[in-house]
């Protein structure tokens, strides 16, 4: 099956990153792939927004003020509503220790920045429920 608009059009992604430049880059890349994109500026902003909204996939940075990516994942996994929600970490970090910590917290996967839009979109399609 080729990359279909019908497949991805209804997939809603929440990106969480404190960098406005990175949010703009992600928004552009993911919208071009046909995804619906919502954005939060840090982990706490994401939690607040998710309290009354639904998404299919969350893509989060790690280093953020107020609540970082690890904290966000841990908080989401405490909630039955988000226990199985696919969560990808997108970070400049690539150490095994950080990846292990994310996996233990309940992350679904890890992508190293700078991201490749095709690979990111493929990963989202693969894990989206």
């Amino acid at each position: 099956m080729t990359k279909g608009h019908e497949m991805t059009q209804s997939t809603r992604i929440l990106t969480v990153d404190d960098s406005a430049s990175m949010r703009a880059l992600l928004l552009n890349a993911l919208q071009q792939e046909g995804f619906d994109v919502e954005q939060a500026v840090d982990g706490q902003d994401a939690l607040d927004w998710l309290a009354s909204n639904e998404v299919d996939v969350i893509i989060t940075d790690i280093n953020m003020p107020r609540l970082d990516g690890f904290g966000l994942i841990e908080r989401l996994r405490e909630s039955a509503r988000h226990a199985d929600r696919p969560i990808l970490v997108l970070s400049t970090e690539s150490s095994d220790e950080k990846k292990r910590r994310a996996r233990d917290a309940g992350a679904t996967g890890w992508i190293v920045k700078p991201f490749n839009a095709d690979k990111l979109a493929a990963a989202v399609r693969r894990i989206a429920h």
Partner: peptide, 13 residues
């Protein structure tokens, strides 16, 4: 470029 082995690398747990 950053180390090519890491660029955009997707690792699913």
């Amino acid at each position: 470029a950053p180390p090519q082995s890491d660029v955009g690398q997707v690792e699913l747990f």
